[in-house]
């Protein structure tokens, strides 16, 4: 088991390194752009005095590595901002300040994260259950009519952009059939039932397309496993088809399902941007689109860093789960 601990440790270090490099890349891309960085950061409607102040806060006169050091310092120990008249403290995970709204980026994120988490995690449950279920079913019924129908449906699912599914769902369910009211976010802590009902459509529109991906992958890797020699062994020993599928073929697909889930998590965050915009959910996606449109750079950078952090975390967790599912990975 010490090999396994070592593997987890190596993977954790790898994640930290990746995160560090990501932060450098993001910093360079956004704060070392050609043109007046202070002006861009502050936003188009800033006065020259404000721009000057921003330039000071970003330490624009210092060399690049010092500037990056200040940026890191802000994240790990906090930072003080002088707003000209007073000094404002920005506590430990300080990602800067929006010069357009005057709010701290960390506060904005903290307010928006629960919405996005509710959306993505809820959708994840749906895509896993629905996707794996469909995949198993179509691998089991392979060659029959029901499998062809499932295949066609999942293909359509894979090919439909998230916002088209969402749009159609919203119009049909809320507009035409009036089965549900147009979604409006309710805090889980306020009313769990309303929370779920209001998120149902966003969940579905985000999850359906990913579920289709999972169905395809589950089916494909189960069929791949079914073609392997060890399946022949169990059949040659009289193990029934159902047990072969449930025990051996599905087990063979587990590792790839875990790997796909890490990738999907990343793409679902992108999908969440669309879903939130479409349904008017006040999550980080909606905030990001807004920040991009008004060019509120500190907010954009904060969002990118935080989502990057979660995606890297998800990848690292997936790698460890993968190693649990397939021990041979640890040896390699």
């Amino acid at each position: 088991m010490s090999g396994f601990t070592g593997f987890v440790l190596r993977r954790a270090i790898g994640a930290v390194v990746t995160l560090f490099v990501l932060s450098v890349v993001i910093y360079v891309v956004f704060y070392v752009t050609p043109g007046d960085v202070a002006q861009i950061t502050c936003g188009p409607r800033c006065s020259p005095a404000q721009v000057h102040q921003v330039a000071q806060q970003l330490h624009l006169d210092d060399p690049l590595y010092v500037r990056y050091w200040h940026f890191l310092q802000g994240i790990f120990v906090g930072q003080d901002f002088s707003t000209g008249t007073s000094v404002e403290h920005c506590a430990a995970p300080c990602l800067g300040q929006s010069y357009q709204s005057g709010r701290q980026v960390t506060d904005i994120l903290l307010a928006k994260l629960p919405v996005s988490f509710s959306l993505v995690l809820g959708a994840m449950v749906i895509w896993l259950v629905l996707g794996i279920g469909t995949g198993v079913l179509s691998a089991w019924r392979r060659g029959r009519l029901s499998e062809r129908v499932l295949t066609a449906v999942t293909l359509a699912g894979v090919a439909t952009p998230v916002f088209v599914i969402g749009l159609i769902l919203m119009i049909v369910v809320c507009g035409e059939l009036q089965l549900l009211p147009f979604p409006q976010y309710v805090n889980f802590t306020d009313d769990p039932e309303q929370w779920a009902w209001n998120l149902l459509l966003p969940w579905l529109s985000l999850a359906l397309i990913e579920a289709a991906n999972f169905a395809r992958l589950t089916r494909a890797s189960m069929l791949e496993t079914l073609a392997e020699d060890h399946i022949r062994t169990f059949r040659a020993y009289g193990v029934g088809e159902r047990a072969v599928i449930a025990r051996h073929a599905l087990r063979g697909a587990t590792a790839s399902v875990i790997a796909l889930n890490a990738v999907t998590f990343g793409s679902a965050i992108g999908g969440a941007v669309l879903t939130e915009t479409l349904f008017g959910l006040p999550g980080i996606g909606q905030e990001l689109v807004h920040a991009v449109k008004v060019v509120d750079l500190p907010v954009v950078v904060g969002m990118v860093l935080v989502t990057g952090f979660f995606v890297i975390l998800a990848n690292a967790v997936a790698d460890v789960l993968y190693a649990v599912a397939d021990r041979r990975v640890v040896l390699a």
């Binding site: 990746t18 990501l22 990343g266 793409s267 965050i269 992108g270 999908g271 941007v273 669309l274 990001l288 689109v289 991009v292 954009v300 969002m303 990118v304 989502t307 990057g308 995606v311 890297i312 990848n315």
Partner: peptide
């Protein structure tokens, strides 16, 4: 490992 939509945006 970078979220594509977010980076593009």
């Amino acid at each position: 490992s970078m979220p594509l939509m977010i980076m593009a945006l």
